[in-house]
């Protein structure tokens, strides 16, 4: 390993403020910028699909599985529908499911983490054992079972993914809450007569919110991947066009044997890009916002040595 990779990271300019630290981190992590660029581009394409997609969705514009051409840069699918159009609309559904499911799992994970960490004792024990239980359940098989029982619909998919992805968030948040709870200012607030609700909402939540955000971006990637997998297995909503559904359609019509690789590869590449973008951005955010990673000698993701200096009130 070269010396260069063990550079001592300079403390952020502007010192104590968190925003400065985030910008600093992003600046020194081109990967995060690449990730953010990917996500912005995909999101723009998805949001503007109805105006900028080259053809209407569901409209047959050529022969089944037509090769890529000037008019159809990525070829046509098994219904003679333009792949570029499908990818834009597909990304829209995938992103919606990804973010909505993540919201569900953040709400659950955040609540469980804060309650367990803040109250401790038997509340902590019970909630953490439940978390452990969900943690050891194999996600995808369970999602398949639940999706099959509830029936295929976008809403069901969102809920199914949401209720299975919250466990790691709950654990991370709980640990951080446990530390915040013992801080002097929290004790002072309590001594002044603040109730649990006030302490949680005004003193604890703001401290763990950045962690929650970093976790969200990482969870979105997993949620989008899960949605794609479920749709590919035929458990998605048949009336919507998600990226997994596009792949499933092509697979059902034996696209690979027919030589129409573009009907499967492009949606696969797009899913990969979205997940990659989320991971890069989420990783950087986590690095920047997770105090535990910051105080370590070795940044968990950058593998750079950092000086052990206090960086404001939330450092230990």
């Amino acid at each position: 390993m070269s010396e260069a990779s063990l550079l001592i990271e300079a403390p952020p300019e502007g010192g104590q403020n968190r925003r400065g630290f985030v910008l600093h981190t992003l600046r020194h992590r081109p990967a995060a910028v690449i990730g953010a660029t990917i996500l912005v581009l995909v999101a723009l394409g998805a949001i503007l699909a109805q105006w900028i997609a080259p053809y209407p969705l569901h409209q047959q514009v050529g022969p089944v599985f037509a090769h890529p051409s000037w008019h159809h840069l990525l070829g046509l699918d098994d219904g003679g529908i333009d792949m570029v159009t499908l990818l834009m609309w597909g990304a829209r559904v995938s992103l919606v499911v990804g973010f909505a499911a993540t919201l569900v799992s953040m709400a659950i994970g955040g609540a469980v983490g804060v309650l367990a960490g803040y109250f401790g004792g038997w509340v902590d024990t019970v909630l953490m054992r439940i978390t452990d239980y969900f943690l050891v359940l194999p996600d995808v098989p369970l999602m398949i079972v639940v999706a099959a029982i509830w029936g295929p619909s976008l809403f069901h998919i969102i809920i199914v993914i949401g209720i299975l992805l919250w466990t790691s968030t709950a654990r991370v948040i709980r640990a951080q809450v446990k530390s915040v709870r013992e801080r002097v200012y929290v004790k002072r607030a309590r001594a002044l007569g603040a109730g649990h609700t006030r302490i949680v909402f005004t003193h604890v939540l703001p401290q763990v919110a950045p962690l929650l955000i970093a976790n969200t971006v990482l969870t979105v990637a997993v949620a989008i991947f899960d949605e794609t997998a479920l749709s590919f297995l035929g458990l998605g909503d048949p009336s919507t066009t998600s990226l997994g559904k596009v792949i499933e359609n092509a697979f059902q019509r034996a696209a690979i044997s027919a030589g129409a690789w573009w009907a499967i590869v492009w949606p696969g590449v797009l899913v990969t890009l979205i997940i990659l973008g989320c991971s890069l951005v989420g990783g950087a955010l986590e690095d920047a916002l997770n105090p535990r990673l910051r105080v370590a000698h070795l940044g968990a993701r950058t593998f750079r040595l950092r000086p052990l200096v206090g960086r404001g009130q939330d450092a230990l």
């Binding site: 599985f65 034996a254 044997s257 027919a258």
Partner: peptide, 8 residues
């Protein structure tokens, strides 16, 4: 044989 693969 699936219709899409007849040609190949």
């Amino acid at each position: 044989v699936p219709a899409t693969t007849m040609k190949t």
